[in-house]
Design a protein around this nucleic acid. Structure first.
Lengths: 285, 285
DNA sequence: CCCGGATTAGAATAAAAATTCCAAAATCAT
DNA sequence: ATGATTTTGGAATTTTTATTCTAATCCGGG
């Protein structure tokens, strides 16, 4: 008699949170009292589903755990755990494992450059969204203040970080902010050029470039201010007592997006340029 | 003997996620190997803590559940559950979706750094979406073909386009593709190095850099292939009979986003690198 | 007012997860 | 090298959590 299928739902398990809410919208009124109550609560507090236990959710919604269970089944899930899995994966947009996806790419997608492009665009977008969610306005403001006060701004970043410093150099030049790109050309040591009243923008991501770390810590010793752009708090750069801005870029295989780092940098540069020129303007006039 | 207190942590339980990361930053490198590994993983994927079990987290970080437990205690928590509770409470506040978040940052004041950042992120995102919509898979495939066949790849792009060519140079180097960055250092004319069997990636956007146009057209005359990355069909670069890829970047004031150009370039580079290495592999074997 | 199906609350059970424990490795000072 | 000390991996244990079950309750129609 009982075939193990959900009793009275329409039988289809929602595959996205959006689909779930769509279904909820059409069916909510026809649900019995307690299930309606559950529906309303979840609609009003979707974020709680991912991080609560059935008991907590039930308590918060003013009902019994079993009522929540019945609701889950009614919506087409096997149980609460399955529903929660959906909400958790939705929250985690940031971390579909890209290592796995790269492996998949190796297998079939690589032949098509367009597929690869779609991948990089996707990753870039996710990185940008993530940047917005994680940057602290206060730290950013601090970084701007430090750079506005500096005599000369030095930009240090090699390999993957070099495009970022190069773009900063371009932006500062356009706004006539005295800024020096440490490019490593001719292996000339530019470190002695960093004076106490200067500021250094040091950029490096895991695996960290030793030269960047060296220049940054030397600059610190010399008394210059430091703005560090790096990936995580455990980065060696973050440890030098300095203003630090954290950017975590997602990657496709071995290559990381630079979208977030570049956007952060250009915003920083424009903010600094604007303020410096404003100050100079009032000073001159 | 054992009084039940945490063994070697400084004893204070972090009360906010920010405090947790601050502590992590100062203590991370004094931790033993596995705990450091755990610290790094959590620093890089803080969002996972709220929605994973110890087992999942351990698996993802490549260690044993017990190592994660030890880490939690080391950081001053009673156990994983307590640490997770902290991350979950923080999670609730960070929920605002993209549009809300954008609005919040903008509200910080019209020309505050955060507002600028929000602006650049938004523009970057739009550029990426636009890129995906406008790039012709056929042209992209053509560009890849041209570059796969080339002996040496030359990258030409100055000023605003320079970060892009620099990133290309980095990517090609990593994949062992023979590629030469025309950087303009020492004002040495690298044009004669472009041989008939080579290919040139020329990048310039309005207002077009004369030097890039010159090198591109000379290269064409010398019989080398040309892949042009530029903004519109009327660009002087697009007129040289060559494969061209069009990227229109949006701007914030005088500064354009580079997100789209970079994503396109890196996708191009990876596609080329993969194919060249595949070809070489079969050839060698 | 009472019957029959649907719905519910709460306890009972099963499953999953966190936490502890200890022997084996690794590291370090001597 | 050698022994003491720290660190680690994995299994055993305990606790928490999800899920099921059943008796009680509700509710609409005769």
């Amino acid at each position: 008699m009982n075939d193990g299928l959900p009793k009275s739902s329409n039988g289809t398990t929602p595959l996205t949170v959006a689909a779930f809410f769509k279904q909820l919208g059409t069916r909510a009124d026809r649900l019995p009292k307690r299930l309606k109550q559950c529906a309303d609560f979840i609609a009003a507090n979707p974020d709680r589903v991912a991080v609560s236990t059935v008991a907590e959710l039930a308590e918060a919604a003013g009902l019994q755990p079993s009522a929540v269970m019945r609701f889950c089944k009614e919506m087409g899930f096997e149980g609460f755990s399955q529903m929660q899995k959906l909400f958790r994966s939705d929250y985690a947009q940031n971390w579909p494992d890209y290592p796995t996806r790269l492996a998949q790419l190796r297998d079939h997608g690589t032949d098509s450059p367009s597929a690869l492009l779609a991948e990089f665009v996707d990753v870039g977008r996710a990185s940008l969204e993530n940047l917005l969610a994680t940057i602290e306005p206060v730290s950013l403001q601090q970084a701007v203040d430090v750079l506005v006060r500096a005599d000369t701004i030095h930009m240090v970043g090699f390999r993957r970080a070099f495009p970022v410093t190069a773009y900063l150099a371009y932006a500062f030049e356009k706004m006539s902010v005295p800024a020096m790109l440490h490019s490593g050309v001719a292996n000339i040591n530019m470190q002695p050029l960093i004076r106490p009243k200067d500021a250094v923008i040091a950029i490096t991501f895991s695996p960290y470039t030793q030269m960047t770390l060296d220049i940054a810590s030397e600059a610190r010793k010399a008394g210059a201010s430091l703005v560090a752009i790096t990936d995580v708090v455990t980065s060696p750069l973050a440890k030098l007592k300095a203003t630090h801005l954290l950017v975590s870029e997602l990657d496709v295989g071995a290559f990381r997006s630079l979208s977030a780092s570049l956007s952060l940098s250009i915003a920083l540069a424009v903010a600094v340029g604007t303020q410096r020129n404003k100050a100079q303007g009032t000073h001159d006039g």
